[in-house]
Simulated assay, not measured.
Amino acid sequence: MTQNTNLEQLSAAGVSVWLDDLSRTRIESGNLKELIDTRSVVGVTTNPSIFQAALSAGNTYDEQVNQLAAQGADVDTVIRTVTTDDVRNACDVLAPVYEATAGVDGRVSIEVDPRIAHDTDKTVAQAIELWKIVDRPNLLIKIPATEAGIPAIAKVIGEGISVNVTLIFSVERYEAVMNAYLEGLEAAAAAGHDLDTIHSVASFFVSRVDTEVDKRLDAIGTPEATELKGKAALANARLAYSAYQQVFEVGARFQSMLDKGARPQRPLWASTGVKDPSLPDTLYVTELVAPNTVNTMPEKTLDAVADHGEITGDTVTGTGPQSQEIFDRIAALGVDLTDVFLVLENEGVEKFESAWGELLDATREQLDAAKS
């Protein structure tokens, strides 16, 4: 099969294309394999909202849920079983990519229960449990970058487990995430783990930053505020990439671990579906092209890039000063960026908790029906 030219160019520019979606239907129908063959997809990310949508649609999971009900499984066991089965099967579909890229890509992510996002010890315990259940080397355990998540990231990496750090909104929090990764690598090396097998990405959420900042700019209502709309998210991500370069391209702490096989923690652009219809629907892809990055896209965005995305090469490297200027101008207008990022983090956890709650309720109803 032939790869789409636009997505092939994106990959050639150093961006790994990952799909932000997963379902059993997508796996069993061959659609995931088709996206690998025709859309340059080399990874998959999941979250509680994605699983909630998958398990609530149609009757694909009915037979397995009924079997688990007959075995006396509770709702948490059912959800853990069906989601880890899907992720394991997706890992197997992507195994050839994992082998071909020496472990850089071919990755599938599964997230810890969002209800424990503020509990370090429970997050660590569940990350280890999920790693053992899925039992695939190309798995990534998603841990949110909450204050409780930061030490959990270090501990899980220290156990030799690969991690996708999620729900990162600010450069300051991202710097704490990178530090936790390095701390984890140091602990893993001390424990005798092979650092070459440990992989991590840091998921920097993009579109939600514009949604929150633009709302505040609208409230200000001046011509300058209007002129700055739709610019905060790209500036934020580009500043994050500058921070990545400082730590992983020239930072002495990471350089000292290279001979032990350590890999850089790549920035991953998440939430790249454009929410403001006045903005180009490929904005958070074409304007965030840089080497050693990942862009995880919902299928709608993937299709938009395939259809009309214009890839013009690196659009990030060297943009730090201009990006900082945009942030300075936004702050000067009275937008409290620290509060923006706090609101977004809290909302992100709440949204995933809500989706998980809906998933629990729907599964509980299905279990009750199976047992009656």
Rank of each mutant, 00 (worst) to 15 (best):
E353W: 07
D336N: 15
I330Y: 07
L337C: 11
E310P: 00
E310M: 12
Q322C: 05
V335K: 01
L288C: 01
L359M: 14
A331W: 00
E347K: 14
L342N: 14
L333Y: 08
H308N: 12
G313S: 06
V294W: 05
A304D: 12
T315N: 00
D339Y: 07
N346T: 15
G313V: 08
L302V: 06
L288T: 01
A290T: 01
V343G: 00
I311H: 03
D336P: 04
A332T: 10
I326M: 12
G348H: 01
P321G: 04
P298Q: 03
L360Q: 09
A355Y: 02
A306K: 02
I311E: 02
I311S: 05
V343D: 13
Q324L: 14
D339C: 00
G313H: 06
P291Q: 06
F327H: 13
K300H: 05
E325A: 15
A355L: 07
V289N: 02
L359V: 07
A332N: 15
G320W: 12
F352M: 14
E347S: 11
A304M: 11
T301W: 03
L337Q: 08
E350Y: 04
E310C: 00
F352G: 03
S354N: 14
L342D: 15
G318M: 12
E310G: 00
G320S: 13
M297R: 10
T296N: 08
S323Q: 09
V289W: 03
E310K: 13
L359K: 02
A355F: 03
L288D: 01
A332L: 08
V305E: 06
E347A: 12
Q324H: 10
T296G: 09
D314H: 12
L302Q: 10
V294G: 07
V340Q: 08
G309V: 04
W356H: 11
A306F: 05
P291V: 08
V305T: 04
A332C: 03
L333R: 05
A355T: 06
K351L: 09
T338D: 15
F327C: 02
G318Y: 11
F352I: 04
L360S: 05
E353I: 12
R329M: 09
K300A: 15
N346W: 08
G334I: 03
G348I: 00
M297D: 09
G348C: 02
M297L: 15
P291G: 10
L344N: 13
S354R: 13
R329A: 13
D361A: 14
N346V: 13
A362M: 13
D307I: 00
G357L: 09
T293W: 05
D336I: 11
G334C: 06
A304I: 07
L337P: 08
G313F: 04
V335G: 02
T312A: 14
T319C: 11
G309L: 05
T301I: 09
D361F: 08
T301D: 01
V340M: 06
I330R: 07
A331D: 10
V289K: 02
D339E: 15
E325K: 14
D328E: 15
T293F: 07
T317W: 08
L359A: 00
W356R: 04
I311P: 02
